[in-house]
Nucleic acid binder design. Structure first.
Lengths: 239, 239
DNA sequence: CCAAAAGTGTTGGGCCTACACCCATGT
DNA sequence: ACATGGGTGTAGGCCCAACACTTTTGG
């Protein structure tokens, strides 16, 4: 960052890659695109693409998501920088430095292919393997990070629609962590954390078609959880 | 990441910036260099520099640290990627994307200037302001991240020499957090966390010149703390 | 009436804060 | 002897996991 001799540095291509996660039918899903060009043509990959000259990585991430998947202006999209992958050789034909993002969204619209992607699709997390480039690793890092941040931040609400029930919020934890939680205790912990959720007065909704209608909540102003909601699993694994 | 049309992307300069933190005389210090060239000539900045063609960001970070400060092959250097700063305009004369790292080290050797830096120096964290570029922000982000990771990882040992006393480990927490901790309880928490520290049999060392010699410990194999060591401050603020 | 889902109550145990106290060393 | 820092013990309280129980809906 100090010498500006034009020969002192080499230009790199800079890209963004997105691990877009959501919950569908009680299972964690990731948004994948099928590559239309070499290298890795026909293989599945994380959506992403090159930075434009006047874009930050965050801006490029939102643009690429819209272009390649049709998910434009998604309400409630949570974007978070994961880390940057810069190993030489991670792209077989040129030097590419990639800024990876994890993105969470609540209600998943059906994506469509576009841009360089021949098609885009929601894939169950466990079925997403053998991705192009080092995307297997990026995806695994994203899941680890999201799982860890559920413990000590309010991130879980990013998986939920604007108004949600505590049962839905609990399902986020159970699905991402792969553990069952005690409902009464979960409710008390959440409600005891100031600013985590806010009650929507008078509102209620039926969830499973049966049972008592659940009260609705909105995400509160807090961003961190004190104390954290620790991953103390029971044995079972629900849907 | 999908089209390889040579006109579809713009090359960027890619750099690394390092927030190197250590403890000196019970206070958090950061390693700064004085810039020898425009822009920001004469201003203090975080050490850093351009990636070479065959380097990962991690490799470049270690190389730049050695070149600009003389800190080569520092034993126990902990390097951790912070995030990437890519806003257009963060460098006044060209488009630069910078991968920032936080680095922690135990015993701070006296650095020397070198490379593009006219001098390098340890500066108390609170005195490090008005840095070049967006380095104020990077430094603040580094401190936040380190403080948070002390809670739920074994990171604190990265501030300590290979063999350390529990009192020294506690000082790490107290200095970074700016809070006083209860010594008996701190000791029990640390020893109760499997894999956090390992006793060095029979070894002991005097710390303050006076008092009972303290038993020595090594960093253990664990990387995360279960349960976490939460920041529950008492009122005081010690040295 | 039954099943299913939301929500409340309660209890016993464990952890942890706060503090008192003992140990070893230098001056 | 005393100051200084390391290390142990312990009591009270808070937190919380576990589970029983009530409430409200659809079939």
């Amino acid at each position: 960052m100090h010498g500006y001799d034009k020969h002192a540095y080499e230009p790199f291509a800079v890209t963004v890659d997105l691990a877009v996660l959501t919950l569908r039918a009680g299972a964690l899903h990731v948004l994948l695109v099928e590559r239309g060009q070499e290298p890795y043509a026909g293989r599945w990959a994380l959506p992403g693409g090159f930075l434009l000259p006047e874009e930050s990585a965050e801006t490029a991430a939102r643009r690429e998501l819209a272009e390649e998947t049709g998910l434009a202006d998604v309400t409630g999209l949570h974007l978070e920088q994961l880390r940057t992958y810069s190993e030489p050789g991670r792209d077989p034909r040129m030097r590419v430095v990639s800024v990876a993002f994890a993105a969470l969204l609540p209600h998943p619209p059906e994506p469509r292919g576009g841009g360089d992607a021949s098609q885009a699709r929601w894939v169950p997390y466990d079925a997403a393997a053998d991705l192009a480039f080092d995307h297997d690793r990026i995806l695994a890092d994203a899941r680890d990070r999201v799982g860890a941040k559920l413990e000590y931040t309010c991130l879980a609400t990013a998986f939920c629609p604007p108004e949600f029930t505590l049962g839905e919020l609990q399902q986020v934890y159970e699905t991402v962590w792969g553990t069952a939680l005690d409902r009464p205790n979960f409710r008390r912990k959440v409600l005891a954390t100031p600013g985590f959720v806010e009650a929507v007065p008078g509102a209620a909704r039926l969830t499973g078609g049966r049972g008592k209608p659940a009260a609705l909540y909105r995400a509160g102003p807090a961003t961190t959880l004190h104390p954290p909601l620790l991953r103390t699993p029971r044995e079972g694994r629900p849907a």
